[in-house]
Amino acid sequence: MDQIIVQILNGLDKGSAYALIALGLTLIFGTLGVVNFAHGALFMLGSFCAVIMSRILSASHTVIDETRTDFLGNPLKVDVPYVYDWFGEAAGQTIIDWAVPISILFAIPVMIGVGFIMERGLIKHFYKRPHADQILVTFGLAIVLQEVIKYFFGANPIQTPAPEAFTGSLDFGVWLGFDPLTIMYPYWRLVYFLFAALIIAAVFAFLQFTTFGMVVRAGMADRETVGILGIDIDKRFTLMFGIAAAVAGLAGVMYAPIVAPNYHMGMDFLVLSFVVVVVGGMGSLPGAVAAGFLLGILESFASMPWMVDKLPGINQIIIYLVAIIILLTRPRGLMGRKGVMED
């Protein structure tokens, strides 16, 4: 029993990342009808927002400390981050420590901006082109984005630690009446899961309870009629693209402490997220979220030792296997809408 809970918990954080990326992909696909292969790159850009923010925050200037000397006897040069000067040392330290959560504030406008530029500058011209062209051009864009990041940040992963307060693990088992130390769950992963749940809830609430969201949903169902009613649906869809980019970006920001950001992390996630979208059903938002968590949890179950003993290699292929089975038996995916990309 405790094993099962451990695996479910382990699957949750990966599943959250899948769900967030798949949600963004589905938003873009559902509104604009574009298959965005650059979505993984947006996730990666989000991660690097965290890297950039932590670099900005720890930007420092050199001060000569007269009271101490280095091993040669000269006065010691100390790097003092600017935030120490502005907020005092204790507060400055806290700010640097909390760089990743702070970069959420930085990432939202940046990612919405990136999404805007992408949609207006490139994707707009591809609405009428075949899906294959959309896949190809966004695939090209993904390569360009990751190479730009590689140029500025190098090819090696960059560690971006979570705030100190979240470094430990939560003894989750005790709450459920198991022995202590049986079910340990790192705090940051719990934070990530809660954060993902919050974002997903926010996106759904936005679509469900605001006038803007209502119009967008109407546009997803029947774009032409909404246009005839005198609503400039393109403008709203552009904003939705920005929001989708921000969702992917935020998923990336918060994932930075779990996996150190490197320039190709987006591609690794993209392939899996596409599988998730297809399993959930193209164009279905709840489907994308459900499939994300489902596949994340399935993956962690498949990597349990006794599972790997019985079916060696199952942990490597489970997601693809499930995708193939679902695609062949349920052509629309788990919750796909009728008439969306059925062929």
């Binding site: 896949i135 392939v271 596409f274 193209m282 490597q316 296997l321 995708a323 062929d343």
Partner: peptide, 24 residues
């Protein structure tokens, strides 16, 4: 299947072959 589903299916098969060749 055709369209994007075909792309994903072939991708899934290729990734499975890669993962299997790599491990099992």
């Amino acid at each position: 299947r055709s369209g994007i589903y075909f792309s994903i299916l072939t991708l899934a098969f290729a990734q499975m072959s890669y993962a299997l060749a790599y491990s099992v």
